[in-house]
Design a binder for these strands. Sequence first.
DNA 1: TCTCGCATGTAACGTGTTACATGATTCC
DNA 2: GGAATCATGTAACACGTTACATGCGAGA
Lengths: 193, 193
Amino acid sequence: MNVVTLCLGILALGDASGYEIKKRFDGPLRRIQEPSFGSIYPALNRLTREGLVTCTVQAQDKRPDKKVYSITAEGRAHLKAELQKSLPGPDKVHSDFLVTMLFQEMLSPAFVAAAVDERIAFYRDLMTTLDCPAGQQSAAKDFVCGYGVAVCRAAIDYLEAYRRDLPAPEPAADPAAGQKERGVLVNPQAMEI
Amino acid sequence: MNVVTLCLGILALGDASGYEIKKRFDGPLRRIQEPSFGSIYPALNRLTREGLVTCTVQAQDKRPDKKVYSITAEGRAHLKAELQKSLPGPDKVHSDFLVTMLFQEMLSPAFVAAAVDERIAFYRDLMTTLDCPAGQQSAAKDFVCGYGVAVCRAAIDYLEAYRRDLPAPEPAADPAAGQKERGVLVNPQAMEI
DNA sequence: TCTCGCATGTAACGTGTTACATGATTCC
DNA sequence: GGAATCATGTAACACGTTACATGCGAGA
């Protein structure tokens, strides 16, 4: 799934500017895909060239001009065809966490424990983000969010069970576990290489 | 996590040739990462240049020569440092399935049902692949496989519950659901665009 | 003042895939 | 006879990210 198709899909759900498309992927959707401006703007220009979307410049008060894109009938047809071309291929997970855990035998137990703690905290946080929109959203978004919640819960349960079996509870590593995203507040050098 | 670090990690688990490294990612690990020859061979050459691995050419009977790589002490130290540099960042899911489902409102119900069926079959198959190695493997691999199984099970449960609520059971779409990976046996054009 | 948010865009760069090139052996 | 497996490697290509360029307004 490339950025061009993704932008076309977002525009099928409603008009938006490049900046707004980017913002949509700052929410829970960022877990699935997180395109940058450097790929979104060229994608929108290409879609416009191909007649799949139209662009209207909107002057704004005390804000820069905005280029609002709308999907055309051809764009809608193209998206349908693109999505139904074949059944979606298998997901790619691309997990640095799992790779790290695969090599955990050569890492310090404190680091492994901190990584697991951080991951539990991360998924707990993600689950609350995903869980709030119940019913009021579109059925499609509910499905995708629900899928995320189900997978999160399973991951948390599994990680918590594993955490209990871990040798050292290591209270010194806990500050790292509370961090959002990928903070580097805890110096890994400090915890026994 | 780039291919270079990944190769170094595999070599930390035991000597291997480029071809053998590739084969390791044909198994269940392929869900996490699936590097190609075009990235593995240059990676091994770079690791050799940097002194992180050594290479010995092994002549074989009735088979082409094999270049077996071994990790050096510096390589091991480098890998440790690389993995413990910072806590692993959040996973990237990259799911064409979820994107497709996000736009399901504009797709034919038959296609959506077929996609869900295929995904259930896929995860069932994956779970059996992941589930078999219990205990005999390394603890690290057990953890990673167990994680995969837990997530698979949650996904299957969620998808099956969703499938039951789906309007049309559509028996014509079932052949697609039985396919492995991403077969194109069923012509999507045939099922009402 | 200085940073942040809004808003668009380009160019360089990194990284990985696909396709090609080569060649013996084994299985159907 | 043809495909598949073993085995390594390179070059072209696709795709996306990062950094840079620009500029105004609002709030700390």
